[in-house]
Amino acid sequence: MHEYYRNNILKLKKENEGYLRFVKVELEQNAGKPYSEVWEEIWGFYEKNLLEHFPYIGGDKVSGTKNLTGAYIFVAMGEVLKRYGVSVEGSARLMVLAYE
């Protein structure tokens, strides 16, 4: 994992959770468990499987960094929701709701 992401991991976690709070109820309904547990599964997938592969593209000075790190929390959400039988379309609907 690039040093930038390692040094900013708590900030990234907080920012990314902010995106998913908008669909908190839907995440609970789809997973059948409290949001805090679903969030930890999503963050765990993100941190373990995605974050270590991100290239450094400028950090806080470049808007692309936030776009990259933010977009991939939705990938992690979709991967976790698959475990609960949620379709790609169902995950996509939650992504749209979170952005709206």
Rank of each mutant, 00 (worst) to 15 (best):
M1R: 11
M1S: 13
E3N: 14
Y4T: 06
R6I: 09
N7S: 14
N7M: 14
I9M: 12
K11P: 00
K11L: 13
L12I: 12
L12G: 05
K13M: 14
K13R: 15
K14T: 15
K14A: 15
E15Q: 15
N16L: 10
G18M: 03
G18R: 07
Y19S: 10
Y19P: 01
Y19N: 12
R21T: 10
F22P: 00
F22E: 10
V23N: 04
V23H: 02
K24G: 07
K24Q: 15
V25H: 13
V25N: 15
E26A: 10
E26T: 04
E26D: 12
L27E: 01
Q29C: 04
N30C: 03
A31P: 00
A31F: 02
A31R: 01
G32Y: 09
S36Y: 13
S36W: 06
W39H: 05
E41G: 06
I42Y: 04
I42W: 00
I42C: 00
G44C: 04
F45N: 08
F45I: 06
E47R: 09
K48P: 00
K48D: 11
K48C: 02
N49Y: 09
L50Q: 07
F54G: 07
P55W: 07
P55L: 13
Y56D: 09
I57K: 04
G58M: 07
G58F: 08
G59F: 01
V62A: 10
S63M: 15
G64K: 08
G64S: 05
G64R: 11
G70T: 04
G70N: 06
A71E: 14
Y72F: 14
F74K: 00
V75H: 09
V75E: 13
A76S: 08
M77N: 01
M77L: 05
G78K: 04
V80R: 01
V86P: 07
V86R: 11
V88E: 15
V88M: 12
G90Y: 05
A92W: 13
M95C: 12
M95F: 15
V96T: 13
V96W: 11
A98D: 12
E100G: 10
